[in-house]
Nucleic acid binder design. Structure first.
Lengths: 234, 234
DNA sequence: CTGTGATATTGGTCCGACCAATTTCGAGAG
DNA sequence: CTCTCGAAATTGGTCGGACCAATATCACAG
């Protein structure tokens, strides 16, 4: 119906996107000049089309190198929150509040819906995050933490939750990575977090919906207090 | 620190955006050729910069007419969910589940945090939505409904909630507008919805957090069932 | 095998021209 | 005087070719 009222630039953008999802290119797009020739269109038009996909976080351009396809993990970051945060650095508390809600509900849904495969994955990420907090590599701690919370959100079996949690975690990963920075093993915060992570996983795996929600809430409360302390100290 | 590693195109996009938020232009942007001259840059560069802002939903271009600034209401639509939904039309249920969570928490927070100004606005939108369901103009019903739920989210005093609820409602407004379509007054659904809206507002205004959450949950349950019926009938 | 420099590739920008949709405005009809 | 219609001006859309700048590639010297 409304397929034919597009400028060539928009049409190009769609064509390129189709080609991408069809795996027609692998990793790197053909040079702009080649694309222009293939689609019988000027290079400027190709550039504007690619520009839109770059703005949407689907592609990445590097002068001299080429245009590259970003995978899901990379592009989840930019999609949503970036504007808000860049424009409004005071959103920390609001984001934490939102995340708390997401974590609680995800935990509850995960307790209800997790499958055998989810079960294995949850046990794995629980072991990983515990191991990470047993050491003092903050990078590994953050990665394990993200994987842990992502696994819970995925176990809720709601793509909206998965998507938002993923982007939210990536945001925190980027902008607030100092939050739990350099947490030493065998300190009180480290012990607390390990215990909370374990309690949350246990509640989910035993399919205790109410307990899962409570555990997630306690965990987020603790995280929120820690962040406030850090901000106060800095 | 990282202010100076931008291509001129990106710099242009930022400059134009600053000019927009500074209200330097009103409604319509100067012609591309003028902008190019003012910023001492080629028209192609201006075009790519504007292209990015268009992709972000900040501007709208019409050949022959000009480039126009979109206000918040217009642009909230495109920001987030469009990709997801266009790519994945089966998300209805997941979105409803997410919205249910948002509505419940918004209601709880609103019950706690609403101010005198919020109070007046909530009473107003409650009257409006009640009046709309007293007639049979579905367009008016939807508008009133959106305003109603937006007011509650705003009363939660969390910008993340306001933003997400706004975009979510706009999405439903666009894609699922047939949901409660043509609701006649003095039918059972109409009476139900009016009662639910009233109960929710009453709970919030009396600052009864638990009741507000429950009322929001009941309302969303009803909406979900109605949507399922409609989909089954179609 | 290593590193280093020339060369090719590729995105970034610029210019000037023309096309196409829209708006503007004045001439002519009523 | 008002309204209508069409030509002209305005403005975004596309084109082609040129050059710049960052990067990658590879042959060659050490």
């Amino acid at each position: 119906m409304h397929d034919n009222d597009l400028s060539r630039g928009d049409a190009m953008a769609e064509a390129i996107e189709r080609a991408i999802v069809a795996r027609e290119f692998e990793g790197r797009l053909p040079p702009e000049r080649v694309l222009a020739a293939r689609f019988r269109v000027s290079r400027g038009t190709v550039r504007e089309a690619i520009g839109k996909l770059v703005a949407r976080g689907l592609l990445s351009r590097r002068q001299g190198a080429g245009t590259f396809i970003l995978d899901d993990t990379d592009r989840r970051t930019a999609e949503i929150w970036s504007d808000m945060v860049e424009r409004h650095p005071r959103l920390q508390e609001s984001l934490i509040e939102f995340r708390t809600m997401m974590e609680c509900r995800s935990a509850e849904l995960a307790a209800t819906r997790h499958t055998a495969a989810d079960r294995r994955r949850l046990q794995q990420v629980a072991r990983d995050v515990d191991a990470a907090y047993g050491a003092s590599d903050r990078r590994a701690q953050i990665e394990a933490d993200v994987a842990y919370h992502r696994a819970i959100a995925d176990a809720a079996h709601n793509p909206v939750f998965s998507y938002l949690m993923g982007s939210l975690l990536n945001l925190l990963h980027d902008h607030v990575q100092l939050s739990i920075a350099g947490l030493q093993p065998d300190t009180e915060p480290s012990r607390q977090l390990r215990a909370q992570h374990q309690a949350l996983i246990d509640a989910i795996l035993s399919r205790d919906v109410a307990a899962a929600g409570r555990a997630a809430g306690r965990h987020m409360d603790y995280v929120r207090v820690q962040l406030n302390d850090l901000r106060g100290a800095a």
